[in-house]
Amino acid sequence: MSRPPRPRPVLSAVLIGGLALAGCGKASQAAAGPSLVPAPTTRALAPTVYLGRNGRTLTTVVPVGGCQEGRLTGGVSGTSVTLSLSITKREKPGTVCAADIRSERVSLTLRSPLGGRKLIDAATGRTIRIEVRAA
């Protein structure tokens, strides 16, 4: 009766090392070098954006994890405000980001009150529901 082949130590080390790099997000940094700054990714906004009592501050909540950070920006016209939510990963070389997910509030303050202008999600083109809350 023959024995099943045993894994080769070199191949096992390569596979385990590759999995470790994939799990902590370091593979792209190892290939491109530590000076690489990841580009922000754009996400769709939550269905509701909260408008502060001042009529100018727009706030939403976004799930982010580890070293991620959310940012809300806007383009303004006479009839609408187009909101864009971007997520940026801020990972310092040689560090490992936590694998947790948390809710982060992101806000944008307009120069003038929103008034009757529509809110548009830049990622989807959809109109966003507005709810008035305390600033």
Score class of each variant (00 low, 15 high):
residue 54 N to M: 03
residue 90 R to D: 13
residue 9 P to D: 12
residue 105 R to Q: 11
residue 74 G to M: 11
residue 67 C to L: 10
residue 36 L to R: 15
residue 17 G to S: 15
residue 65 G to I: 03
residue 101 I to N: 07
residue 96 V to E: 02
residue 122 A to Y: 10
residue 94 G to D: 08
residue 15 L to G: 14
residue 119 L to P: 07
residue 63 P to G: 06
residue 31 A to V: 15
residue 58 L to M: 06
residue 130 I to S: 01
residue 58 L to G: 01
residue 108 L to G: 03
residue 119 L to N: 04
residue 131 E to C: 02
residue 76 V to K: 01
residue 36 L to Q: 11
residue 107 S to G: 12
residue 124 T to F: 11
residue 132 V to Y: 03
residue 49 V to T: 14
residue 43 R to A: 06
residue 15 L to C: 12
residue 10 V to E: 14
residue 71 R to L: 11
residue 55 G to A: 02
residue 68 Q to G: 11
residue 70 G to W: 00
residue 73 T to I: 12
residue 31 A to R: 14
residue 46 A to S: 12
residue 131 E to P: 00
residue 37 V to Y: 02
residue 100 D to E: 13
residue 75 G to A: 13
residue 39 A to V: 05
residue 109 T to I: 05
residue 23 G to R: 05
residue 112 S to T: 15
residue 101 I to K: 00
residue 73 T to E: 14
residue 32 A to Q: 12
residue 117 R to K: 11
residue 119 L to D: 04
residue 16 I to T: 15
residue 109 T to H: 09
residue 43 R to T: 07
residue 33 G to K: 09
residue 21 L to C: 13
residue 120 I to F: 07
residue 12 S to H: 03
residue 63 P to D: 05
residue 91 E to H: 03
residue 43 R to G: 00
residue 120 I to N: 06
residue 67 C to H: 08
residue 129 R to E: 07
residue 43 R to K: 11
residue 17 G to R: 04
residue 121 D to E: 07
residue 91 E to Y: 02
residue 99 A to E: 13
residue 37 V to Q: 14
residue 100 D to M: 09
residue 64 V to S: 06
residue 26 K to T: 09
residue 62 V to E: 14
residue 67 C to R: 01
residue 24 C to H: 07
residue 127 T to K: 14
residue 54 N to E: 03
residue 121 D to S: 10
residue 48 T to H: 01
residue 62 V to I: 09
residue 89 K to A: 12
residue 15 L to K: 01
residue 1 M to Y: 08
residue 66 G to Y: 10
residue 120 I to K: 15
